[in-house]
Amino acid sequence: MLMEEDGLRTSARRRAATGVVAAAVAAGLAAGAGAGVAAPAAFADRQVSKTTADGWRVTAIKADEKVRSVAPLNQSPWTREGFLSLRGEGRITGNGRTAVSAGTVSSGFQIGCNTDVTSGITLGVTAGPTAQMSISWPPALIVGAQTNGNISTTLKPGTIADIPFGTKRLAGPTAGLTVDGVHVKVDGCLGPVVVRSYVTVAISTPTNDNTINVYGQPHYL
C-alpha cells in the first residue's frame, strides 16, 4: 500500500514538472512569435547634466534610440534576435576654474537573460552548451572613435551584461557617436531578454575626475 502511494505521489510530481516545462516552452514560443510582428520601439531622448567641483557643466545625452525585435532566423524558442540603434552625445559648458585635460563619451546597452536553459537543469530542458549572446556591426566611420566590431559573451540568469558600442574622445565642447541597426542575438535563453541603453560622459581636470550617466527605458527583445 505504501509503495502504491509513493508511486502515485511520484507520478503526480512528474506530471506537475512536465506541465511547468510545457508552460515555459509555450511562453518561449509565444515570445518568439510575438517578436516577429512587433513594430520598432522608439524611445524619448533623455539627458542628465551635472556641475563638477571645478565649475564645468557636463551633459550626457541619449538620443535616437530604437529597438526592433524580430522573429529569429533559426526559429528556435531559445533565441531572441533584434536590431538596436543609439546615439550618445557629451557636452561641456560653463567656465571651469581648471582646464579640462581629457574627456570621452561612450554608449552601449545592458542586456539581461531571465532564465538560462542550457545547463539541462533549469525546468529540465536541455538546449545547448551555454547561453550566448552575440552583437555585430560594421565599424563606424567616425574619425577618432574607438568602436567594437563583434562581441560575444555568456549570459547567466540573474546577471546583466554591459555591452559597449564605442567610445569617442571629447576634443572640444561636444562630441558624439551613432550606431544604427546593430544586430543582436541571444541564444539559449528561455523567457524575457531585456535591453537598456546607456550613455556615459567622463572628463578629467588636474584636480578632479567626473563621470555622468544617462539610461534609457528597459525593453524586451
Rank of each mutant, 00 (worst) to 15 (best):
G158L: 07
A33I: 15
T200G: 01
R13M: 14
L73C: 06
G216R: 05
G103D: 01
G216D: 04
F165D: 04
L84N: 01
Y220T: 15
A22N: 10
F43L: 11
A23S: 15
T174P: 01
T153Q: 07
Q110G: 10
Q146G: 13
R80G: 11
T93D: 11
G32A: 13
Q132A: 14
M133Y: 03
D116H: 05
G28P: 01
C113Y: 02
S49P: 04
G55R: 09
I61M: 04
K156Y: 07
I111K: 02
T98V: 12
V214D: 02
T178K: 00
S49T: 15
G181W: 02
T59Q: 05
L84F: 09
P77S: 03
T167G: 03
T104H: 04
W78N: 06
R91G: 01
N74F: 03
A42I: 08
E89W: 00
S136W: 12
S106W: 03
A53I: 08
G172N: 13
G188E: 07
T159P: 04
R9L: 15
L141S: 14
H183N: 08
S134V: 14
E4W: 08
V143T: 15
A30I: 09
T93H: 08
A131L: 07
D116F: 06
T211Y: 05
A23D: 11
G128A: 09
V143M: 11
I121K: 10
Y215H: 12
P173D: 13
G103Q: 03
G112D: 08
F109Y: 14
A161L: 09
L73H: 09
N213I: 09
F83V: 08
Q47L: 10
A171K: 10
S101M: 12
D45E: 12
P157F: 05
V37T: 15
G90M: 02
